[in-house]
Design a protein around this nucleic acid. Sequence first.
DNA 1: ACCGTTTCCAACCAGATAGTTGCTTTTTGG
DNA 2: CCAAAAAGCAACTATCTGGTTGGAAACGGT
Lengths: 195, 195
Amino acid sequence: MAWDIERTKNLLLAAATREFSDKGFSGARVDRIAAAAGVNKERIYQYFGKKDGLFDAVLAVELRRVIVDVPIEGEGPVAMGDYAGRLFDHHRKDPVLARLLFWEGLERGDQMVDREARSRHCAVKVEQVMEVLPGIDRTDAADLLLTAVTLCDGWTVLAQLDALLAGASPDRAGRRRAFIVRTVTMLAEDLQAQA
Amino acid sequence: MAWDIERTKNLLLAAATREFSDKGFSGARVDRIAAAAGVNKERIYQYFGKKDGLFDAVLAVELRRVIVDVPIEGEGPVAMGDYAGRLFDHHRKDPVLARLLFWEGLERGDQMVDREARSRHCAVKVEQVMEVLPGIDRTDAADLLLTAVTLCDGWTVLAQLDALLAGASPDRAGRRRAFIVRTVTMLAEDLQAQA
DNA sequence: ACCGTTTCCAACCAGATAGTTGCTTTTTGG
DNA sequence: CCAAAAAGCAACTATCTGGTTGGAAACGGT
């Protein structure tokens, strides 16, 4: 069998994604990642430098994924609500990114990974919001976007709190989703009206 | 000098609060907590059982604190916005609780600490919301509350993301606070109108 | 077939980590 | 004032951690 470096890297990335998402950076165990990937631990240090590098790589992959899978597009407040809904679905299907973002916020604090790329990513997203809601203030667009992201991502992490607050009603997720969509739509309407 | 067990316990709790808030559960180091408190490590195991017990105690203290310091009171939608603002201020002054909640959500997942007490706490809060907005649906009250909490707590953890999205404008925190207050007020208005 | 290069791996290391123990010091109650 | 109980502490342990290394195995070009 020929060497398949990409495959090995992907196996490691997949295992690392799961481990980091579950346990966070300091909780993740390098040995466990290697074992889950069925790859020798040493490969991690060869391919990704060290634990930090692996974390960064995982986050980069997931960020790229959400950009492609959940675009901001369409026109008017309803389009923003729709975006929030799709973001909610994305996280619900696979909570990895939401968890990684909170892990990063908590563990890394101010030393964010790859500031430049992240900054560009954010700028693009804000720009897209401004296209969907013409005439909106840039700061308002950022606030609206942050609100949508916080609500969607926050729910995947604080789901236990939600269960305590709202009880274990059937299709709780669907109800929460509808609530968030409505909130974001309403907010977008209000911001555009005053623009 | 007489034994002052309470003082020792409080020293440990204070140090543990800081450590857990900063590093989370698996990132926190028992030795560091003991050193910061100027107390022998063994005391922790005597007073709190083990690391888990200390974490639980810290969380309990902070939860009790926010109930007292940030009550839900008043009448009508504006009162809910006001509550969100005060919650925001509470976390901004001291991000400990917000961070602990997210740490718990991420690290503990479904095995939440002291379910019974937490459940009661949540029920009381929802009840208070229903008093402020008479006639509102119970599920809506829970959703509104969760929205306010998610937005306020989320901002303290995702502040870096905020900086990337909105730029480092002066008094960014104040602007975000105003946005959240407005969002919650508007939402409360809408919910009460349809009630 | 041969050989330099790349990929892989088992064993290893130094430092850290949660949790324990045996003993000393202080307090308390009669 | 004395003995029993409680509180305090330094040193210890067994285990785990991220990270390294020296050599074996598989490859590709000739």
